[in-house]
Design a protein around this nucleic acid. Structure first.
Lengths: 219, 219
DNA sequence: CTGGTGGATATTGGATCCAATCTGCTAGGG
DNA sequence: CCCTAGCAGATTGGATCCAATATCCACCAG
């Protein structure tokens, strides 16, 4: 029997995954309170695993907690956004500095393949898939630094703006630019050019922060 | 009635606080499994708030979780330590860059007062109090950057090495140096000298990383 | 009209109980 | 002697139930 079973994760883990999805789709909208009873029933679990999941998301800053008042989906202020991107700037540069010299050709192939996935998803107009493929593309690079804490922190920072980032891929001009920038970054990786790779990543990031800012201010 | 009531926190919050204490005192030793039933009873609560608290600590990397096998107190490898301090280097520099120009005289007074607390605790030989006062001293500065995510991330990084840092204050030569370095940092703050403040903080940090490394390798 | 008081209701916090899973031991076969 | 199967105990995962707290609104006094 070689079939690889999808092990049934614990309810808590399943809930965490599902809550993340509800957050990025906006099904749990920023600012809205989390009614545990209703949400637990909707997910088909009791409140216990839901509360554990919420504690995890609280740690990531995705929801905020007030004693005896429960959880509220975090809203991102412009200040928050600036802070998130500034931290990304510092930490992504470090990740690239460490990762690039360690990248094997196999790694680069995998990253190139992820770039292809982004392109395919874009062609199909599948925004959700494009978002996750885009994330895979970047984190294949970051993770190559073999700095787990750094990766985890970066994931948290990306998560914080995921809700708003989807609007970025909605614009077809943005989609085209993303593909172009991915190609440029890949090129810098292949030539093992650290400063250029950092610059490319920075440019890429700056474009998205601009889009997210407008999405945030015009509501 | 001007007395400020100590509001009874929720059991979960109380447990989080207590677990942190158990972690820094080494009462929960790195590598040891967390037996929920016994620990809950010891803390006088049921397993529910304990599990929520553990999820929080898991998010901070203080404990590790494996499905159906429970939680284990994290052990810090030398690689982890290097990573933690590299991230601190990047993020603390940023915090100081942002905070220093915003520091009011009142802020500086508060920081100076915290430095005095460290000194007092050191004179009394109260290592636990010295650790917390030292932390207050540094985070009064970091928090002045008004970047809550950055502060939170930094706290997590400090927490990760707290267990091992206590050995640092155990050496009387180290204690003397800490006081000296705090004074130098304060001086840089008063003259609003950003590069010097960053350099002082770096030097200060490097001394502690050296101590923690030896504490870690010689076990 | 304003401000405060009391109580009804909704919601969260926590304890207990049972189910699911893992671990370690024992026994049997090769 | 070693390896595997399977059972028993220990431990975690989750559901349900009750207690504690907050919120909201009606009501009353000033």
């Amino acid at each position: 029997m070689t079939a690889t079973f999808e092990r049934p994760p614990t309810a808590t883990e399943a809930v965490i995954t599902e809550l993340r999805r509800l957050l990025v789709t906006g099904d749990l909208a920023p600012g809205s309170p989390v009614r545990q009873e209703a949400l637990a029933e909707r997910l088909g679990v009791s409140r216990v695993p839901l509360r554990e999941a919420l504690k995890v998301l609280e740690g990531e800053g995705q929801v905020q907690y007030h004693r005896h008042r429960g959880y509220v989906v975090s809203e991102l202020s412009v200040d928050d956004l600036v802070e998130v991107y500034r931290m990304r700037e510092l930490l992504e540069a470090e990740a690239i500095r460490v990762a690039l010299p360690r990248l094997t050709d196999t790694d680069i192939d995998a990253i190139a393949s992820a770039a292809g996935d982004v392109e395919d998803a874009g062609r199909r107009g599948d925004l959700a898939e494009m978002t996750t493929a885009n994330r895979d593309f970047h984190f294949l690079l970051f993770d190559a630094a073999a700095m787990p804490r750094l990766s985890r922190t970066l994931r948290g920072l990306w998560d914080a703006t995921d809700v708003y980032r989807s609007v970025y891929f909605a614009g077809s001009d943005n989609r085209a630019r993303v593909l172009h920038e991915h190609a440029a970054l890949l090129d810098a990786l292949e030539s093992r050019d650290v400063p250029r790779a950092i610059a490319m990543q920075a440019e890429h990031r700056d474009h998205s922060v601009a889009a997210v800012t407008t999405a945030l201010t015009s509501r």
